[in-house]
Design a protein around this nucleic acid. Sequence first.
DNA 1: AGCAAGTGCGTGTATTTACACATATCAGAA
DNA 2: TTCTGATATGTGTAAATACACGCACTTGCT
Lengths: 144, 144
Amino acid sequence: MAKSLLEPPSCACFNIRRAARKVTQIYDKALRPAGLQATQFTLLAMLAAGNDGNGILMGSLAGRLGMDRTTLTRNLAIAERAKWALVRPGKDRRERHVALTAAGRKKLAQARPYWQAAQQGIIEQLSETGLAELLTLTHRLDSS
Amino acid sequence: MAKSLLEPPSCACFNIRRAARKVTQIYDKALRPAGLQATQFTLLAMLAAGNDGNGILMGSLAGRLGMDRTTLTRNLAIAERAKWALVRPGKDRRERHVALTAAGRKKLAQARPYWQAAQQGIIEQLSETGLAELLTLTHRLDSS
DNA sequence: AGCAAGTGCGTGTATTTACACATATCAGAA
DNA sequence: TTCTGATATGTGTAAATACACGCACTTGCT
């Protein structure tokens, strides 16, 4: 009897999903003036970070983002439609090389201060130490 | 230049969402033999925990789950379709009282060992202490 | 009684997510 | 060269998510 009452509060899945919903709303709201949502911001930032001049392969990008390959296909379609990202075939014609456009870089730069504000808000809630702990824990979950 | 390279790794939103994806997959996979997904399991568990005999109001349930009221409407529709939950109007006819059915309690009981296995797997990855830290941090994010 | 404000909830729409399945292409073996 | 398995990716479908908007109902004021 008491057991069923205790499970939801301690469930790792429930708690991390709930926190992810909350945090997503914070970033989405903060990024709103820039016309970006958190997922798209992350996608553009990852593209900017991984740009070796020739673009990034879909599979590699999905791996870096820690999301399913097919999820990236849908998310990237939005970035393509908005002209933030460009996808080109490679010499190996199975491959698709993804790269930021100039508009994408501009949008990312425009969004950066709003991201910074949201990130700062999180730091004020968790403290620098708390955020570092959170990142450590999430990394330990990802790398399994 | 270096700044754009450093942002994604330290972004609270990116990291918690990525971890949530990973953890969700772990629980979904574990719960698969029970025919439940993590979200539905959480919903049923919360209904079981909050059952005062008369059901829980939609808004209250959404608050306890930390999800948008309208998201709960869609998630609950799935539980209703599967006959795990029952929704009845209250004396105040705007209200909707949600309660588990007998089938819902049975399904929850059936799923519990699979949930326990997934939870144990997380504990082995993070340690008891690590999980406790994660719960503390996520609670601090939720309560803002 | 009647009206205005507040409350509880659903719907339309768009995004995010991923599994199951399918397709196209490449690399190496026979 | 031809076939076979591996690789890179897309599509169909369903669930999860939430904002903007709208509707029904209640409450309190006049």
